[in-house]
């Protein structure tokens, strides 16, 4: 399949007070063109780090990428010149929808001013390569048209008035619609949405997610969507990748993900969803300390199927179904029960 994004063997460490935290361990991850992929896992599993690594905005003084590659649209982002990345990848080919629409707007500028500033640098009409010396009048007005049109498309009422408002004057749902509009404006190939709805009311969450899905599908834009909520992921994603403690464990089309999970962690994760039959069931044990992670498959201390092999070596990805990959020595066989 033609991949837009292929992350291979990515290993990232963070310097912390208690030593080097191995936050990503040889992670493989890919997104097809026009595909909406959910990256799911508990907090601290490394999904946000992976998203930020793709964007190229890991904290420079503490994060270290020690191995792997990030190939995007035929370019290896890790080998590219950082300035080139900032000008024609970040905000152009890859855009970003932040987790918290409340604080991701600068409180002291109007929304219009902030979108204008973004378009000045990132409008599809902007010359690639160097940044703008000045913002030409003609482009400015065509950009404004584009902005207003898109604000209507994301169903924001009275876009002209909205642009004159300050961020604190609009609701959280509207702000996140704005963020989605801003992510679409540069006409990107990939949108990275980092838990875009956790800060919102449940009722608004669904609307925002459906909007994101519809617009991405219409425009053929791929979406990387991180979440810890399996339910929302199922609603909008074509495919899901599960991470556990800095390792990718399984990747499958949404349907087979829920019906035929193969990695034991995925199985346990699905079982931990509240259900009528058994109520809430947690996974025994604790998430490992990433400064001293267990060798091999990091899930083995909590896995009842673990063998000596699991404790020594981490399995390579193996095909377990159509478009379904798992990294497990003892994949589950039947319907959700190992």
């Amino acid at each position: 399949m033609d991949d837009l994004l292929a992350v291979t063997g990515l290993t990232v460490g963070f310097a912390t007070e208690s030593g080097l935290a191995r936050v990503l361990d040889q992670v493989d991850f890919r997104i097809g063109r026009g595909e909406i992929v959910g990256l799911v896992g508990e907090s601290g599993c490394g999904k946000t780090t992976l998203a930020r690594a793709i964007l190229g905005v890991l904290p420079a003084n503490s994060a270290r990428i020690s191995a792997g590659s990030i190939e995007f649209d035929g370019r290896d982002l890790l080998q590219e010149d950082p300035d080139a990345l900032a000008t024609d990848i970040r905000g152009r080919a890859i855009t970003f929808v932040p987790q918290d629409p409340f604080s991701s707007f600068n409180p002291v500028f109007t929304i219009g001013r902030q979108i204008e500033e973004l378009m000045k640098w990132k409008s599809p009409d902007a010359e690639p390569g160097s940044g703008p010396r000045r913002y030409a009048r003609a482009r400015r007005s065509s950009d404004l048209e584009r902005v207003l049109e898109l604000l209507r498309i994301v169903q924001l009422p009275d876009p002209e008035a909205l642009l004159r408002k300050y961020p604190h004057e609009v609701s959280g749902g509207q702000r996140q619609r704005l963020m989605i509009a801003m992510a679409l404006l540069p006409e990107p190939k990939l949108i990275i949405a980092d838990e875009p709805t956790t800060a919102l009311d449940v009722t608004i969450q669904a609307q925002i997610l459906k909007l994101l899905r519809r617009l991405a599908a219409e425009r053929g834009v791929s979406v990387l969507f991180t979440t810890h909520d399996l339910g929302t992921a199922y609603e909008i994603c074509d495919r899901m990748t599960v991470m556990y403690a800095g390792q990718d464990v399984e990747s499958a089309p949404s349907d087979s993900f829920f019906t035929e999970p193969r990695h034991i962690y995925t199985v346990r994760l699905l079982q931990s969803l509240p259900s009528r039959d058994h109520g809430i069931r947690g996974i025994p044990g604790q998430v490992p300390d990433l400064t001293a992670p267990p060798p091999g498959c990091r899930f083995h201390p909590r896995c009842d199927a673990a063998s000596a092999l699991c404790r020594q070596t981490r399995p390579d990805p193996s095909d377990v179904g159509a478009g379904h990959v798992a990294r497990c020595w003892h994949p589950a066989q039947g319907e959700g029960t190992p």
């Binding site: 000008t87 905000g91 991701s104 990132k122 940044g131």
Partner: peptide, 25 residues
């Protein structure tokens, strides 16, 4: 802050972010 993080993630040059946005705040 998150808004600076957002600007940087959207590829707005760092010097522009610092001298035009951050300073005002």
């Amino acid at each position: 802050s998150n808004y600076v993080d957002y600007q940087l993630a959207m590829g707005v040059p760092r010097r522009v972010v610092v001298w035009r946005y951050v300073l005002r705040n």
